[in-house]
C-alpha cells in the first residue's frame, strides 16, 4: 500500500482538484435533497394539472375546436410557461435555503470537524457550495424543465391528434427553439443576477452563530428603514427590489405590455397571456451592459472571499 503512494501524489494537481470539486458538489445534493426534489415535485404537479386541462378541454367538453386561435394557443402553451416559471421559482427558493444552511448546518451538527479532516481547503469547500447555485442548479433546472416541457407537448400532441385537430398545431404555434434558448439564457442570467444574494447568504450562513435567516434579512430591512426615516430616500429599497424582483426584466425585453386586467374580460387576459409569455425576448446587450450586474458580481466575489475566511476560522457552534 505504501508503494502506491508516490503514484497518488504524482497525479496532476488540476485533475485531482476538478475531480474532488465535482465530488464535493455531489455531496451537497446528498445533504440537500430538496434542491432537486422540490422542483421535480412542482414539475410533476404542473404536469398533472396540464393533463387535467387537456382532459377538460378536449375530452370532456370538446370545446377546444370552438375557441379562437389566441385562446387555443393560451390553453396549450400558457401552462408550459407557467410550469417553467414555477419550477424556476421553486428551485430558486430551495437554493436560497441551501445557501443559508450550507455553512451553518455543518457547524451546528459538528460535521465540519469531519469535513476539515479531509485534504480539502476551505476555499475548495466554499467554492463547491457556491457552485451549487451558479453551476449545478441551472443545469438541473434545465434538465427538469426540458423533460417537463417535452412531456407536456407530447401530451398536447396526443390530445390534439385524438381530437382531430392534428399535431401540426404545436409545430406551427409553439416556439421550440426560442423557448429552449430562452430557458438557458434565463437560467444563466438569473444565476449571475442572484450571485450576490447567494454569496451574501453563504457568508451569513458561515458567520451567524444562530438564526442565519434572520441575520441575512434583518440588517437589509433595517438599512431600508433607517434610510427611509433618516434621509427620506429609498435607495436601498430600490436596489434590493430590483435585485430580487426584477431579475427577468434585467435580462429580457417584453415586446408587448404585460397582461393586465384592464380589459375587464377574463378571456382577454388569458388570450393576452399567451402572447406575453412568448414575447419575452432575451436581451443580452441590456443585461451585460447594466452596471448593477457587474457591481453585484463584484459584491459576490467579496462575500465569497469573506465566507472562505469565516469557514477557516470557525469551528462547531
Amino acid at each position: 500500500m505504501n508503494k502506491a503512494q508516490p503514484a497518488a501524489q504524482t497525479k496532476p494537481n488540476a485533475l485531482v482538484d476538478v475531480r474532488s470539486f465535482v465530488w464535493s458538489i455531489r455531496r451537497e445534493f446528498w445533504e440537500h435533497r430538496s434542491l432537486y426534489i422540490a422542483p421535480f415535485a412542482i414539475a410533476l404537479i404542473g404536469l398533472a394539472g396540464y393533463l387535467y386541462v387537456l382532459f377538460n378541454t378536449f375530452g370532456v367538453t370538446g370545446r377546444f375546436g370552438r375557441e379562437t386561435l389566441a385562446m387555443q394557443r393560451s390553453i396549450l402553451f400558457v401552462p408550459v410557461s407557467a410550469v417553467t416559471f414555477a419550477i424556476i421559482a421553486t428551485a430558486t427558493l430551495a437554493t436560497f435555503y441551501f445557501t443559508l444552511d450550507a455553512l451553518f448546518g455543518e457547524r451546528r451538527d459538528r460535521s465540519i470537524l469531519f469535513w476539515k479532516s479531509l485534504p480539502l481547503s476551505d476555499r475548495h469547500a466554499v467554492l463547491a457550495k457556491f457552485a451549487v447555485p451558479m453551476l449545478a442548479m441551472p443545469l438541473i433546472e434545465f434538465v427538469i424543465i426540458f423533460f417537463t416541457q417535452l412531456a407536456m407537448l407530447i401530451a398536447a400532441g396526443i390530445a390534439l391528434s385524438l381530437s382531430g385537430v392534428g399535431t401540426e398545431f404545436i409545430w406551427k404555434h409553439f416556439p421550440f427553439a426560442k423557448m429552449a434558448a430562452g430557458v438557458v439564457y434565463g437560467l444563466v442570467t438569473a444565476a449571475l443576477w442572484y450571485a450576490p444574494v447567494y454569496a451574501w447568504f453563504l457568508f451569513i450562513s458561515g458567520w451567524a452563530r444562530r438564526g442565519p435567516v434572520l441575520w441575512a434579512v434583518v440588517p437589509v430591512i433595517a438599512a431600508m428603514l433607517v434610510e427611509r426615516f433618516t434621509l427620506g430616500s429609498t435607495l436601498v429599497y430600490d436596489l434590493i427590489q430590483r435585485r430580487i424582483l426584477a431579475g427577468t426584466s434585467a435580462s429580457f425585453t417584453e415586446k408587448s405590455a404585460a397582461a393586465s386586467t384592464q380589459g375587464g374580460d377574463a378571456r382577454v387576459v388569458v388570450e393576452r397571456l399567451g402572447e406575453t409569455s412568448s414575447s419575452l425576448t432575451p436581451d443580452p446587450a441590456k443585461f451585460f451592459s447594466n452596471p448593477e450586474l457587474w457591481i453585484g458580481l463584484l459584491l459576490a466575489v467579496v462575500f465569497v472571499i469573506a465566507a472562505i475566511q469565516r469557514r477557516r476560522n470557525r469551528g462547531p457552534i
Partner: peptide
C-alpha cells in the same frame, strides 16, 4: 458525533474515494 447524520455509508466511501488521494 461528527459524521453527518444524513450521510449514507456507501456515500461516505464514494466521497472519500473521490477526494482523498490516500
Amino acid at each position: 458525533a461528527v459524521l453527518p447524520r444524513w450521510l449514507k455509508v456507501e456515500n461516505a466511501i464514494d466521497y472519500l474515494d473521490g477526494v482523498h488521494p490516500k
